[in-house]
Amino acid sequence: MSTVPDNLRYASTHEWVHVEDDGIATVGISDHAQNALGDIVFIELPEAGTIVNSKNEVAVVESVKAASDIYSPVSGEILEINEELLDAAETVNLAPYDGGWFYKLKMSDAAELDDLMDADAYIEHCDAE
């Protein structure tokens, strides 16, 4: 059974967002997602400064099974990427909600959060897949 923290919002494509009071969002992929992907071996991340739109491809995860696109759950400017993942992609398997975060972004439209799921809805979404 995968872990689904209550304090995050989730996209149907299995990314999570954590938003601080200052409007800075941290993005990663869910425990359910890392489990389905299998061992992750490489991650391609965007450069800081990149402007991304929600639901657009922003990163690529290469696992032992396949290459998978990661879609940004919210729009904004990338402030920082998790450079540790470039050399230690397996961190996403081990700690998808902590050390395995992908990037931080300055949100341009806080209303987009309303389109994302809370933990209960996301659990239902995963069960239905």
């Binding site: 299998g38 061992d39 071996v41 032992v64 397996e90 398997n93």
Partner: peptide, 8 residues
């Protein structure tokens, strides 16, 4: 069985 946890 595909794997029992980690394939690597």
């Amino acid at each position: 069985p595909l794997n029992y946890g980690s394939q690597i």
